[in-house]
Design a protein around this nucleic acid. Structure first.
Lengths: 129, 129
DNA sequence: AGACGTTATATGCGCACGCATCTAATGTCC
DNA sequence: GGACATTAGATGCGTGCGCATATAACGTCT
């Protein structure tokens, strides 16, 4: 019979995850918003786009590496487009598809925000947690 | 000079925390909602109230052990009151204060939901994460 | 080609959240 | 006791989210 983890351990680990996540997410959200006018989701989206060589991905691919629902991602991209940080371009092979491409302004905004992002993580993401 | 954690490690750990949290929270939210008509925050609130002997706490004390903002907690309690799972009673010593007390129905609902909660954790909160 | 299922993305809707502010009760200092 | 700061909690407001559904472009089968 497999070794079952005691229930309390499970719950304790969950609680720790819960509070740890919320504390950091909350700080990130505020810091990114105040200093760079970016949502956490927006920052994370930009981040995904910069780590690609081409800086261009289909919504679908983007969604796979993200934690957001499909609809939330779609709206996040819409916001980024409105801010001029990203562009939507149609996919020629499959005209249902949409490419998302980061703009020069997007790269710049991301580069600035990255500092804030790292600073918050360094302060609140303790090695122990 | 103190050993600095490389930036990429920090970010990697954050990403892992982010996706891990979101996956579990999402499943919990759905499972608790579908099976017991409870929000994750509502469940967590009930949970805090049952672990107390008296099952009765001031909003303030409750807030300290939770990840929610003060306003979100206030509204969560309002919802729980509407569902009859909790009661608000005035504090006599300090009439600004409010006690929150779990009802019998609240204890029962929590007991049922706890099974779902544990099941989801057992399935998605891997020991490794 | 036409009908029908499927896939990629967008959108309507309701909801929980955080921030700022309001209200009411306390405390403090004179 | 009266003026003023402080504290506990509730509420107005705007926002991002997930779910369900709509839309449009595929693919397939005949």
């Amino acid at each position: 019979m497999p070794r079952m983890e005691p229930e309390t351990d499970l719950v304790d680990r969950w609680r720790s995850l819960l509070s740890c996540y919320n504390e950091i997410a909350c700080h990130l959200e505020r810091a990114l918003g105040d200093a760079h006018d970016l949502t956490l989701s927006e920052y994370e989206s930009l981040d995904r786009l910069t780590t690609q060589e081409c800086g261009k991905r289909r919504m679908q691919d983007l969604a796979e590496t993200m934690y957001l629902s499909q609809s939330a991602l779609s709206r996040t991209v819409t916001r980024l487009v409105k801010s001029g940080l990203v562009e939507r371009t149609h996919c020629e092979d499959d005209r249902r598809g949409v490419f998302v491409e980061i703009t020069a302004a997007g790269r710049q905004r991301w580069a600035e925000a990255r500092k804030t992002h790292l600073a918050v993580l360094a302060e609140h993401l303790t090695p122990a947690a």
